[in-house]
Design a protein around this nucleic acid. Structure first.
Length: 525
RNA sequence: GCGCCCAUCGUCUAUCGGUCAGGACAUCAGGUUUUCAUCCUGAGAAGCGGGGUUCGACUCCCCGUGGGCGCGCCA
């Protein structure tokens, strides 16, 4: 069967790198398997969904090259199908209505199957016995089983579970006499809505069963069925709930594998039942570990760095972010990190995905970004820098040849596309200066005189690196300055900063007149 | 509280019972260089704790500890 996966975010707030990482893994898996990658926007939460969020989401997807293979599905347009599915479940006795707490309406509740043949994902664990707090009532009705247990501190704590979790339940009093037996009454409870209350129960016995979820990254996951509850699938206001909508849409879109964050595993146990009740074999599941912030905590709204759009504005390349994110929780199994999309597609398999959480490391992303920038053809780099610089005022009137020359000189020194904002001194005279450093370098003994000599000799010197260097060496000798010690003062005078490309090539690009004027201004403010 | 999941250098990771536990980022120390960046050398840095199983465990099992997730008429 052809693989079909989907990325199904809800457009509330900005797209998170955790989400986008899930999108990347889905995309990688689809491409590796030669399948389809679909995008579904789960916009049923009208309160929180915004067009703004939808747009930033789509922008991020496009920026990262996560192209979908079919038209986008909007969940809000599928409501009728969701409701029809719910009605169907009610008709077949697999769901029931329950009036809302405020009595204004009735929600549709999906019942974990308490009778009939077990689906393949349910497994019996043998009989189980559990103590019951005798002073609290034990009740059974169509919505489940409720009783209390005594904890270590001697306090009664309520326990609640679905009917399905208590197959062949027997309630015993302190003497061991059976007070209640579920199996013979099941039909009356389910069909006639009868309920039963037992007082003074001491022990319960039942056949324990568990849900088995074969996860493609975490292996076999299980969950005791008695820990699960029936679940609301349609609100009393008539709106379908996430679980129903999600499963219905996955069925409608023919999804074969669901790859999502592992914060969904608990939902998956329930979705398994929904797929089954709706007459479908559940898809394969792969639960991805979470990405945590620098504090090792899950990303929250406070973490500004977590939003995909920010990476773009901070000057990161989509290829670099894609590459970096694909390495968070996955590795090709060799010591290979920088790789093309094609390489990642070729090597990506779910069984190589790690199951522990991963922490985002901005330094490493930056390093990767630097590598990608260094590898860019100069034309592309120049274009990217122009785009990133946008319409900065000092860009006005810069001759294309000069700009290109500066790009060529500075490319290998760029960590991000934001770095070129510091190139201002090449083109304009109102650039930021490292005043403290400048004062230190310019204030040295005899420096003023030496720099004035440099300014003087600048006019006639041949405008080549070699000639400029020779001239500066001359001035050093004439001024009694140790060889090489004049470079930094000249640099700071000419550029305002203490770090940059080679001084002589920098000077050539800054221009003869500007160099002279800046040196003069530096010594005589 | 109950349930589920996770656990290798500071960080991302390799290892699918036998390795001097490897790589990358970061850090530190040298070298090259007119500063920076590059480049080259080198260093420090890890199997959460306790029990098992085994000739042998980072790897398998159990307990504990720590962290995460879930327990909504949110998604």
């Amino acid at each position: 069967m052809k693989v079909r996966v989907r990325f199904a975010p809800s457009p509330t707030g900005n797209v998170h790198i955790g989400n986008i990482r899930a999108a990347i893994f889905n995309w990688l898996f689809a491409r590796h398997e030669g399948g389809s990658f679909l995008l579904r926007i789960e916009d049923t939460d009208a309160e929180r969904s915004t067009d703004e969020a939808k747009r930033t989401l789509l922008d991020a997807m496009e920026w990262l090259g996560l192209n979908g293979d079919e038209p986008i599905v909007y969940q809000s347009a599928q409501t009728a199908a969701h409701l029809a599915a719910a009605e169907d479940l009610v008709r077949r006795g697999q769901a029931y209505r329950r009036t809302s707490p405020d009595g204004t309406g009735a929600a549709v509740v999906f019942r974990m199957p308490a009778e009939g043949p077990d689906p393949a994902f349910i497994r019996s664990c043998g009989s189980k016995s559990a103590p019951v707090c005798p002073t609290e009532p034990f009740t059974v009705d169509g919505t489940g089983v409720r009783y209390s247990q005594v904890n270590r501190k001697g306090v009664a704590v309520p326990v609640e579970g679905c009917l399905a979790g208590y197959r062949n339940l027997r309630v015993l009093d302190a003497s061991g006499a059976c007070q209640f037996e579920l199996a013979p009454l099941l039909d009356r409870i389910l069909r006639k809505g009868e309920s039963f209350t037992v007082e003074g129960a001491a022990t319960i016995n039942y056949e324990q069963r568990e849900v088995v979820l074969p996860d493609l990254v975490k292996g076999k996951l299980t969950k005791p069925l008695e820990d699960m509850k029936d679940l609301v699938i349609v609100r009393s206001n008539g709106a379908p709930v996430f679980h129903l909508a999600n499963v219905c849409d996955d069925i409608a879109q023919g999804i074969t594998h669901i790859i999502r964050g592992d914060d969904h595993v608990e939902n998956t146990y329930r979705h398994l039942f929904l797929f089954h009740a709706l007459g479908h074999t559940p898809p394969g599941y792969a639960h991805l570990p979470m990405i945590v912030n620098a504090q090792g905590k899950p990303y929250s709204k406070r973490d500004g760095d977590a939003y995909v759009g920010d990476f773009k504005t901070k000057g990161f390349l989509p290829q670099a972010l894609f590459n970096y994110l694909s390495l968070l929780g996955w590795s090709p199994g060799e010591d290979r990190e920088k790789m093309t999309r094609d390489e990642a597609v070729r090597d990506f398999t779910l069984d190589r995905v790690k199951s522990g959480p991963a922490q985002m490391d901005l330094k490493k992303l930056t390093h990767l970004n630097w590598q990608y920038i260094a590898d860019m053809p100069i034309d592309i780099f120049e274009q990217a820098v122009r785009g990133a610089l946008g319409g900065m005022a000092w860009m006005q009137g810069v001759p294309p040849e000069s700009f290109r020359a500066v790009c060529a000189l500075m490319q290998s020194r760029c960590n991000t596309l934001q770095d070129p904002e510091g190139w201002q001194y090449f083109f304009a005279d109102d650039y930021p200066r490292e005043e403290k450093e400048a004062a230190k370098l310019l204030g040295r003994e005899g420096m003023t005189a030496a720099l004035e000599r440099v300014a003087l000799k600048l006019a006639p010197v041949e405008w080549t690196e070699a000639a400029i260097e020779a001239m500066i060496r001359d001035v050093e000798r004439e001024s009694g300055i140790p060889e090489g010690k004049l470079n930094q003062p000249v640099r700071v005078a000419v550029t305002g900063v203490t770090r940059g490309a080679g001084l002589y090539e920098t000077m050539i690009l800054v221009g003869r007149d500007r160099c002279r004027d800046r040196i003069v201004r530096a010594v005589r403010p």
